[in-house]
Design a protein around this nucleic acid. Sequence first.
DNA 1: GCCTGTGGATAGCGGCACTCTCCACGATCC
DNA 2: GGATCGTGGAGAGTGCCGCTATCCACAGGC
Lengths: 210, 210
Amino acid sequence: MRMADLSAGTGVPVPTIKYYLREGLLSPGRPLGRNQAEYGSAHVKRLKLVRALADYGGLSISAIRELVDHMEDPGTAKTELLSVAQKTVTTHDDERSGEHVRQAERLVADLLARRGWDDTAGHQAARTMVGVLASLLELGLDDILRALDDYADAAETAAGVDLRVLGDVTDRERAVEVVVIGTLLGDTLLAAMRRLAQAHLSVETYRTTG
Amino acid sequence: MRMADLSAGTGVPVPTIKYYLREGLLSPGRPLGRNQAEYGSAHVKRLKLVRALADYGGLSISAIRELVDHMEDPGTAKTELLSVAQKTVTTHDDERSGEHVRQAERLVADLLARRGWDDTAGHQAARTMVGVLASLLELGLDDILRALDDYADAAETAAGVDLRVLGDVTDRERAVEVVVIGTLLGDTLLAAMRRLAQAHLSVETYRTTG
DNA sequence: GCCTGTGGATAGCGGCACTCTCCACGATCC
DNA sequence: GGATCGTGGAGAGTGCCGCTATCCACAGGC
């Protein structure tokens, strides 16, 4: 399999494949001569992974490189992968301050305590939560904040499914894939389904209540 | 309130505020003279909204402009706003094709039918779902697809909370805000909480089972 | 033997979100 | 009341990112 076939099989243009090779997102093919190399099905799959993470995971090229490096490293444990995938979300290290931020920090701490998630304090996602909640507070959207626990229920349901799916996977390499892809594409998937459910429920509500 | 105060009150640099004014994300202040204008609390709030949508909603400047235009237009109905906010997600109009895509389309159609969401076929989010599922199929992650209904449960829970929160809001202008911000920041919020729940459950699981 | 395609490298491009510069003028502080 | 700083307004410039184009010597295949 040469580069043209790789391109045809994935829909990724040849110059882009070359770019990915340069950036280390894709390992070089097995060289056959001075300017000829052989690619296999692993390359096809990797390319599809890269595109999926870029298109639906919203990851940058450098984030994808980091991720695939970890995926290839056999020293990365299953649990560790979870945290690596989790850290590869858009990080917000702005470190704002102010009354609202302190209030948001308290809300998050309370929520974590209430749900028994206290082992996750200091987690990157907790900091993202603080940022989002601080924005909601600044914008005066207390309505949403009052429903925080209900949203946490939904998140916990999703996480429960995540873990159950992961538990069924025994093969290490596949577990790595499931964690990374499931977490990142799962965000997009859940958001899309939330919108569909919203649309459906909203139509239903306005039909029955006028 | 002049520009320096506006900048101090929001943390947004003066040149950036000028840029937002040029781009129409922020309405001009009330002019006091040839080169002096008065800004009010509405400007502060709008600026915070713009930053929240950019930072946590992941929206581009042009998408934000579109959104705030609709929010200001009193002709936009509450239900209409929902769909406007929903369309302002990253659109994927690639229109791929292939066996996996057809299979994904069937999976989505089946899911919608099973849940009674058939009124949402053709929705932008449905197309996003098709894209994500096609990627999952191409990557051979059937494990995740088998749990699709369970993820849909989580999404429906979240959407139910959305609608309940929205139902409690009577003021039109606030309803608009709740829909737009709740939908877009809500995605980030849910994703963050999902990660925290994942981390907690995973720690718990590995503690009990070894 | 000739045209297309290859791997490899370097340079260029278009878009985006600012950021900088300049300007004539107003506000403010000593 | 004069120096200095900030203002609204507009244009041009910047840095990064994700490609895309160009060039090269050479291989493969009709």
